[in-house]
C-alpha cells in the first residue's frame, strides 16, 4: 500500500529533494456550491413531479399518497412512529456496536494463529451464508424475547463484513514494517497496537460503512420475519400494520424515517472513516495531479 502510494510522488519529485507538495484544493467556490445545489435540486424536482403526478391524475390516497400527505402523516402520527423509530434505532445501533466489537475482536484472535482461524472461520462463514430471514423465526423461539432475537439477527448480518475486512486488514500489514518492529524487539501487543491496528484502519472503515448499512436493513428484515406487536414494535411493524390498514401515508412516513435513518448512518460512518483516514490514506485524499 505504502509503496504504491509513494511511487508517483518520488518520480514527480525526482531530484528536488527539499520540496514538499502543497496540497491545494482545485475546486472553486462555485463548483462547491453546485455540488450541493445539484443533488438537492434533483431530489426536490423528483418530489415535485411525484406531487404533480398525484394531483393531475387524481390518484387516490389508498393507492399512493402525495408527498404532502406523507409529511402530514409524519406530523400527525409522530406519536406512533417516533417510539418505533427509537426501537429500530436502538436495535440497529446495538447490533452495529456488538458487530464492531465482535468483528474486530474475533479478527484479532483469528490472525494470531492459522489453527485458530481454521477452527473458527467455518462458523463465521456458515452464519454469513445462511439467509437471515430463514433463521429469524427460529431465533424467536430460542431467544428469551423478541428484542434479543431481532438484535441477534441484525448482529449476525452486520458482523461478517466487519470481521472479513478486519482479517484482510490485519493480514495485509507491510512486511517491511513487520520486520522493523521485530528488529526493535516489539512485543506482540505493541505490534498489534502500533502497527497492525492502525494499518488496518482503511479496512475497518470499509467494514464499518458496510456493517452500518446492513445492520439497519437486517433490523428491519428481522422484524418483518419475526413479527412483533405492541409497545416494543419497530418501524418494520409500523410498515406492515399501515399496509394492512391501507394507511399508505403513514406507511410512506415510516419508510421515509427508515430512509432518513439509513442516510444518517451512512453519513456518520463516512464521517468517522474520513476522520480516521484523511490525514494519510489514499481513499480519503484527493489526487494531486
Amino acid at each position: 500500500m505504502t509503496d504504491a502510494a509513494s511511487l508517483p510522488n518520488s518520480n514527480a519529485e525526482a531530484g528536488t529533494d527539499s520540496q514538499v507538495i502543497v496540497v491545494t484544493s482545485r475546486s472553486s467556490v462555485s463548483e462547491r456550491v453546485l455540488s450541493v445545489v445539484i443533488p438537492v435540486f434533483m431530489v426536490l424536482l423528483a418530489i415535485a413531479a411525484w406531487q404533480a403526478h398525484i394531483m393531475i391524475n387524481q390518484v387516490p390516497r389508498y393507492i399512493m399518497p402525495a408527498p404532502l400527505d406523507v409529511v402530514n402523516a409524519l406530523w400527525t402520527d409522530w406519536g406512533t412512529l417516533s417510539p418505533s423509530l427509537l426501537v429500530t434505532l436502538r436495535i440497529t445501533l446495538m447490533a452495529l456496536g456488538l458487530a464492531l466489537l465482535g468483528g474486530v475482536g474475533l479478527a484479532i484472535i483469528l490472525v494470531q494463529s492459522r489453527w485458530i482461524e481454521l477452527a473458527l472461520f467455518p462458523f463465521a462463514v456458515i452464519l454469513q451464508v445462511t439467509p437471515m430471514i430463514a433463521i429469524a423465526p427460529l431465533l424467536i423461539i430460542y431467544m428469551p424475547d423478541t428484542q434479543s432475537a431481532l438484535l441477534t439477527c441484525a448482529f449476525v448480518v452486520a458482523f461478517f463484513p466487519i470481521l472479513s475486512n478486519m482479517v484482510a486488514g490485519l493480514k495485509s500489514v507491510d512486511h517491511n514494517l513487520l520486520n522493523l518492529f521485530e528488529l526493535y524487539g516489539a512485543s506482540r501487543w505493541q505490534t498489534l497496537i502500533h502497527l497492525k491496528l492502525p494499518s488496518s484502519l482503511p479496512y475497518f472503515a470499509a467494514g464499518l460503512r458496510i456493517g452500518g448499512g446492513l445492520s439497519l436493513i437486517a433490523a428491519v428484515v428481522a422484524e418483518f420475519a419475526a413479527g412483533s406487536a405492541g409497545k416494543g414494535s419497530g418501524l418494520a411493524f409500523r410498515l406492515l400494520e399501515s399496509g394492512y390498514r391501507l394507511n399508505y401515508p403513514r406507511l410512506y412516513a415510516a419508510l421515509l424515517l427508515l430512509m432518513a435513518t439509513g442516510v444518517v448512518i451512512f453519513a456518520l460512518t463516512s464521517l468517522i472513516s474520513w476522520a480516521m483516514l484523511h490525514r494519510w490514506h489514499e481513499s480519503a485524499l484527493k489526487r494531486e495531479n
Binding site: T2, S6, E13, A14, T16, D17, V20, W280, L285
Partner: peptide
C-alpha cells in the same frame, strides 16, 4: 508532515 507529503529522498 505525513510521509505521503514527502519526496522519495526525504522519506
Amino acid at each position: 508532515s505525513y510521509p505521503r507529503e514527502l519526496s522519495g529522498g526525504m522519506k
